[in-house]
């Protein structure tokens, strides 16, 4: 078992700020891409997350009549919390905040939490547009979740462990991303999907007047938008030990390599926005079940064959 030191629990209090920094970098990348398409300069682009934060924190909240305030609060505040909980099991070099023996399953549990949160964000405001969007997200989730679970299982099979540090160290020589391309691809696709981002932005898209964001303003909106970048950042971090060899790499230290790899994955996830038409859940359902599910099962067979 590789030596990974668990930090004192109190260090975990720094996790949200650290992840927020990574998420801000991601938001800046997405902002830069949008700004470039609109013809704005690079400086404007890079500062978009900051100006948006300032704008939204000064904006009033609004609550539609007979909204379910409690569940809406849970959804809005839950997104950042779940994102941070998803990320804390990732080993950073030789240290880790939470050395969970079932880190892979924990990640899976947190991504399932997002089912609840996106749906609740649609239910909360008592508005037709957001209600339709929240349900549309669940329809998509039913199609990506099982392929994602199998994609998560493949690295665990090859590493004989569900602990992320073990999975990372099992890739000496060859990254799982290389010989498990299907699992890695499904992972990236699902990360975009459970963040309701890019081609899978079904919960928050202009065709439903912003979907779950249709009634959301001020700090609520900031929490949802920031929460989404946090989830993308967390998914990018988890991809590093799962598929990209963890902190392994020449010259730079393991912490630096983990961050560099996470930033690259984050760039791929963030820059998927707007590049392709939205993939509608009613189309994706059959692809998820009839194409991706068998493909990930075969991938698992390959992983099991390679492992035994």
């Amino acid at each position: 078992m590789p030596e990974v030191t668990t930090l004192q629990p109190w260090w975990a209090a720094l996790a949200p700020v650290t992840l927020l920094t990574l998420a801000a970098a991601g938001a800046a990348m997405a902002g830069a891409q949008t700004a470039r398409r609109r013809g704005d300069g690079p400086l404007v682009a890079a500062t978009t997350p900051l100006t948006e934060t300032w704008r939204l924190l000064r904006q009033r909240r609004r609550v539609p009549v007979a909204a379910d305030r409690v569940l809406w609060h849970v959804a809005v505040g839950g997104l950042p919390v779940v994102a941070v909980l998803m990320a804390v099991v990732v080993p950073l070099g030789s240290v880790v905040l939470v050395d969970s023996p079932v880190g892979v399953v924990w990640f899976n549990a947190m991504d399932v939490m997002l089912w609840a949160l996106w749906w609740l964000a649609g239910w909360g405001p008592n508005s037709t547009h957001s209600l339709v969007a929240g349900h549309r997200f669940l329809g998509l989730a039913l199609a990506y979740e099982l392929p994602l679970m199998f994609a998560l299982t493949s690295p665990a099979i090859a590493a004989h462990s569900l602990r992320l540090a073990d999975v990372a160290s099992a890739q000496q020589g060859l990254w799982f991303a290389v010989w498990m391309p299907v699992a890695f691809g499904v992972y990236l696709l699902s990360a975009v999907a459970f963040s309701s981002w890019g081609p899978f932005a079904v919960a928050a898209h202009s065709d439903l007047a912003g979907g779950v964001l249709a009634e959301t303003s001020g700090v609520d909106r900031w929490l949802v938008l920031a929460g989404r970048h946090l989830v993308l950042a967390a998914a990018a971090l988890v991809a590093v030990p799962l598929f990209l060899g963890g902190g392994a790499g020449p010259v730079l230290g393991p912490v630096a390599w983990t961050l560099v790899k996470a930033l690259v994955v984050l760039a791929v996830l963030e820059l998927s926005a707007g590049r392709a038409p939205m993939i509608r859940p009613e189309r994706f359902a059959e692809v998820g079940w009839m194409v991706l599910l068998p493909a990930t099962v075969l991938q698992m067979l390959v992983a099991a064959g390679g492992a035994s």
């Binding site: 398409r37 898209h205 038409p277 939205m278």
Partner: peptide, 15 residues
């Protein structure tokens, strides 16, 4: 194009 989610193409069209 925007409603279809392809905002890159929509932005080209708007330019």
């Amino acid at each position: 194009l925007d409603l279809a989610g392809w905002s890159a193409a929509a932005d080209s069209a708007r330019r």
